[in-house]
């Protein structure tokens, strides 16, 4: 049993993912203080405040980070904030533009007036510095090649110093840490992070020290945000599958350890 065929494990995981998606059991989602921190800050922002959302991920992290982006955008648009979008990951550009277009269409927001998607530009840390010095030099035009200068959504915005709040949704480097080091520390704006579940624990020191004021971690974080904005989405739907998968893994690990101790005991008796 300890050397079980791994195809059986694969089948168990497939069943744990698929069955709850087909028949959800919809357990309540508990909201953590780190996710509530992001929600409450956005909730307290006055109308037409400038909110910067950086899509620092690519399609491989789409299932975890796209629901976070959708929930944050829904909240920002509902609060009537001016939203600036961008990405540090070239392969995430199309994905980010698609999310913006979709949520904007759903909430009746207009490109150029209520939001702008700047797209991608090289440089990572140096791009943040360039944006901190002069946003229009860093991005002379947006993703649709419309000149950024004179856009109603950017009225009164010269650089990152004019951003009221920013959230980086990151799947690794370049991401939250880089935004803090090159952006927040010098240009003095408040920021939070959203990340994949796997890198979230590494960001807790930034959260505890106040360098970021909130953290949305993985699919669970996205589901918590959906709960807060009272709009269920793909994250809430996926949490049942995640619950079942976690339980299958826990049972497998416990079984494996049980067999391991039984075998060790038998070997001890033989000696």
């Amino acid at each position: 049993m300890i050397g079980i065929d791994r195809r059986i494990i694969f089948l168990l995981i497939a069943a744990a993912v698929l069955l709850p998606l087909l028949r959800p059991f919809g357990l309540p989602i508990k909201v953590s203080p780190e996710v509530r921190g992001v929600y409450e800050y956005i909730e307290a922002l006055p109308e037409r405040s400038v909110f910067l959302l950086s899509f620092d991920f690519d399609p491989s992290s789409k299932p975890e980070l796209e629901p976070q982006a959708v929930a944050l955008l829904r909240h920002a648009f509902r609060k009537n904030l001016r939203v600036i979008g961008m990405t540090h990951w070239l392969t995430g550009t199309g994905l980010a533009d698609d999310v913006f277009s979709r949520v904007a269409a759903e909430t009746g927001k207009e490109r150029g007036k209520d939001y702008v998607f700047l797209g991608w530009s090289p440089g990572a840390g140096s791009l943040i510095i360039a944006m901190g010095q002069d946003l229009y030099k860093a991005f002379p035009s947006d993703y649709t090649k419309t000149p950024t200068q004179g856009m109603p959504v950017l009225e009164g915005v010269r650089s990152l110093r004019d951003v009221n709040y920013m959230v980086s949704l990151a799947a690794g480097s370049s991401g939250i840490e880089m935004w803090y080091v090159f952006g927040k520390d010098k240009y003095r704006f408040e920021m939070a992070g959203g990340s994949t579940g796997v890198i979230a624990p590494g960001l807790y020191p930034f959260l505890r020290s106040g360098q970021i004021n909130g953290l949305i971690g993985g699919l669970q974080g996205a589901a918590e945000y959906e709960t807060l904005i009272k709009r269920k989405g793909t994250a809430t739907a996926g949490m049942d599958a995640q619950s079942a998968t976690h339980f299958v893994i826990i049972i497998l690990v416990l079984l494996c350890n049980m067999f391991y101790f039984v075998l060790r005991g038998e070997k001890g008796k033989v000696r």
Binding site: R6, F10, I13, K62, P63, T91, L252, V253
Partner: peptide
């Protein structure tokens, strides 16, 4: 890219066991 990342769940479960 989504497929590459999602199959990790299967390998993680197998490796954890």
């Amino acid at each position: 890219q989504g497929t590459m990342f999602s199959i990790l769940a299967f390998f993680i479960a197998s490796a954890a066991y």
